[in-house]
Design a protein around this nucleic acid. Structure first.
Lengths: 158, 158
DNA sequence: TATTGTTATACTCTATAACTATA
DNA sequence: TATAGTTATAGAGTATAACAATA
């Protein structure tokens, strides 16, 4: 069977939003940690890149600067992230997780992954294998290079 | 190689948001058709289920009724969708695409798919195959069944 | 002047609660 | 009373434009 790029694109365009909505709904359901997907991704990035600037985070999460500024505002207000002046370049901002931020991140990561794992567990192992391969193939195409640095070698099960 | 559900879940949790953000950004870039992802999915659903009620659409897109009501408002205001009283049960609403809605949908579908296809085209064909298989495996896990249950045996085109 | 970030403003997305109209 | 939708309200996500501070 031959698969054209167009066919693959259509499949992705149909299925990815479905999965995404499910992930969001599950995160919302978990009022305890109460993180949106962009918030989660921001914490996750800061976990790997402690001390990053606002621009760094915005670039890697894929938000415009003002959007990221607001998002960080809310994380700072909730004491999940610290925002300090950069020593040396006072235009810059230095962002890092608080202990509480790290705990929220871990909690959200664990519960969302567990939820997804529950879904995925109903698949035969061959299909799970295919899913993993597909994700690894797609990652570098969609901003993954930026995050490849970020996530290479991470143990998700921790 | 053995793939646990947890590993697969972690991959999905990392990669799907990346792909999603890219899809959204591309749709936003196309000011011509100017459809958000939920708007696009709503039009797409109505294309396949002309005459559906608000509840049908909300259930299948995964929105609460008021959210869908507002979303449909905007589509009606833009003359992409018609909203009429259901003959027989006047509480119900009957939704359908206008010619213009169908055109917008096709335009958005084509340009987004073309964009994605461009990305995916850089993959070797074996990887594209894997992507398609993965999407087909994931679809029924994430809301894909709902459509089947809801609409099985019902003639929505009437 | 260029860079970093914030404020102002304006959408869309999304939920819950309260309401209306119909059955 | 139960169902289908809408309105009211609120908060998050997101963008662009205008601004301030620093380099």
């Amino acid at each position: 069977m031959r698969v054209t790029p167009e066919q693959a694109a259509c499949e992705v365009l149909e299925v990815v939003p479905l999965v995404m909505r499910d992930i969001r709904a599950e995160m919302r359901r978990h009022r305890s940690c109460d993180l949106s997907v962009p918030q989660f991704r921001t914490l996750s990035f800061l976990d790997q890149h402690s001390g990053a600037s606002l621009s760094d985070v915005a670039e890697n999460i894929g938000l415009a600067l003002p959007s990221m500024s607001k998002l960080v505002d809310s994380l700072v207000a909730r004491k999940l992230v610290t925002r300090e002046m950069h020593a040396g370049d006072r235009r810059r901002v230095t962002l890092a997780l608080t202990a509480r931020g790290r705990a929220s991140l871990e909690s959200a990561r664990a519960s969302t992954a567990a939820y997804l794992a529950g879904r995925v567990a109903t698949l035969p192992e061959a299909d799970r294998m295919v899913v993993v391969q597909a994700m690894q193939a797609l990652r570098p195409l969609f901003g993954g290079e930026r995050e490849m640095l970020t996530y290479a070698g991470r143990d998700c099960t921790r």
